[in-house]
Design a binder for these strands. Sequence first.
RNA 1: CGAGGAGGAAAAGAUGAUCGCGGUCCGGCGCCGGCGACGGUGAUCGGGUCGAGGAAAGUCCGGGCUCCACAGGGCAGGGUGCUGGCGAAGGCCAGUCGGGGUGACUCGAAGGAAAGUGCCACAGAAAUACAACCGCCCGCGUUCGCGCAGGUAAGGGUGAAAAGGUGCGGUAAAAGCGCACCGGGACUCUGGCGACAGAGGCCGCAUGGUAAACCCCACCUGGUGCAAGGCCGAGCAGGGACCGGCGGCGCCCCUUCGGGGGUGGUCGCAGGGGUGGCCCGCCCCGUCCCGGGUAGCGCCGCGUAGAAGAAUGAUCAUCACCCGAGGGAGGCAACGAACUCGGGGACAGAACCCGGCUUACGACCUCUCUCGGCCG
RNA 2: CGGCGCGUGGCCAAAUCGGAUAAGGCACCGCACUACGAAUGCGGAAACUGAAGGUUCGAGUCCUUCCGCGCCGA
Length: 125
Amino acid sequence: MRPEGFPAFLRLKKRREFLVVQGQGKKIHLRHFLVFVRRRRRGKDEAEAPPTRLGITVTRKIGKAVTRNRIKRLVREGFRRQRRDFAPGLDLVWIAKRGAPAIHYSDVLAEFDALSLRLRSGGRR
RNA sequence: CGAGGAGGAAAAGAUGAUCGCGGUCCGGCGCCGGCGACGGUGAUCGGGUCGAGGAAAGUCCGGGCUCCACAGGGCAGGGUGCUGGCGAAGGCCAGUCGGGGUGACUCGAAGGAAAGUGCCACAGAAAUACAACCGCCCGCGUUCGCGCAGGUAAGGGUGAAAAGGUGCGGUAAAAGCGCACCGGGACUCUGGCGACAGAGGCCGCAUGGUAAACCCCACCUGGUGCAAGGCCGAGCAGGGACCGGCGGCGCCCCUUCGGGGGUGGUCGCAGGGGUGGCCCGCCCCGUCCCGGGUAGCGCCGCGUAGAAGAAUGAUCAUCACCCGAGGGAGGCAACGAACUCGGGGACAGAACCCGGCUUACGACCUCUCUCGGCCG
RNA sequence: CGGCGCGUGGCCAAAUCGGAUAAGGCACCGCACUACGAAUGCGGAAACUGAAGGUUCGAGUCCUUCCGCGCCGA
């Protein structure tokens, strides 16, 4: 697999998967997003942890179709670039908050930095 | 130079680099089936190729397509409404009339109010019919305050709207009572396919407004919407029909205890099916029919962009473009080229397809026209 | 995708067939009562009816377009 690719098996696609992560995962508030994080279960015969997957939710309350698409693209781009720095075996669900339409790509990168920082400090306990 | 009007074309400014995304084709890889050739499949990898708009938006009209209903006609309901042409369309083109604008131009649901019904608050005497409150005038009476009988609609007052308007004549005061102009009406002629326009003489001319109130007239009109509609369908549960080959065992019912009847639970033989050219062999088995129909990375519908967490993005560089400030070549002047710095690029994302409309929108190009300012 | 409904002070809301200067309650402000508050009484402010046009003498009400909500069906 290409190091910065984003093939389909790295995405959450079914509504059921989203509900599981949102119901059982840990809730982390960032500046423009609400992120749910849940550790994936490891299969019996799998040697290493499964890769970290991403799902994005932007409701119609956030904006019109153009802005919703733009937010999802930016988050996907950030995940694609930062994926190597993340611990494997997680499911992430990003839900856009009200301020999200105004963000730029650099803001998304900052959000990812903040998220990984929170995950590291929280995971030590 | 500025401000504007109309028509058209084109719309992430262009190119490159790096990292990416969706469809499809080819190849690799994984999985499944097969002895195999090979076939199927995948959320996987590589390569080729294609990959948003003029409005993709709103869903205001219409068509294709879909299923349901349906002889024809009519009623009800809904829609449209100046004229002519085209069209499937509430659209387009050309014109007429009316409103707006100095103008180029632009906007208009613009049929009918002597078919009928309703409504017209407040004010006012009176709001569609019996017009007369203050007035004005004549006559009679008078206690000189006014009263009665009549004429009148000019003036005052109310109102959005008050029985055509203005002027002159006229009169007791007045009045289309008479005349001129304006307005109106039907008529004739002329031009035009027509909406309508123009002209002419005629009629002194009471006959509101509202139909985006009910309505009348003319024309159009069946409903449904791709979550339409069709197909596959694990599992679970259901309905009906047929023959139940023979025998053993089991189970159930009846019994005069001899037996009789029922039963696809099971075994054997027979039978049927599959594999195969055929036999042996091996494997499977009550048969047939029917409806509903869930799960599904389901399939088709579905496209030379095209899915069902829904693709066309991010970063950088260079070059154009526009705006502002500085600058000042050039020019008699109004004006203003090169260059430097700073800033900017809208509205918006296909979801069955197509045509029209409406709404949103930065800059640029082209054609044509109007108004204004300054200079010579 | 299709259909239906609703937008009136900060909040909840009324307004008959088109005829107002657009009710009422909660909340708010002031005064009175009280030692202070609550409650009560009196008084007051706050709206151009989602936006823009149109019809009408007159529009919250009728019509058109747009904006924002909500509901229903498949």
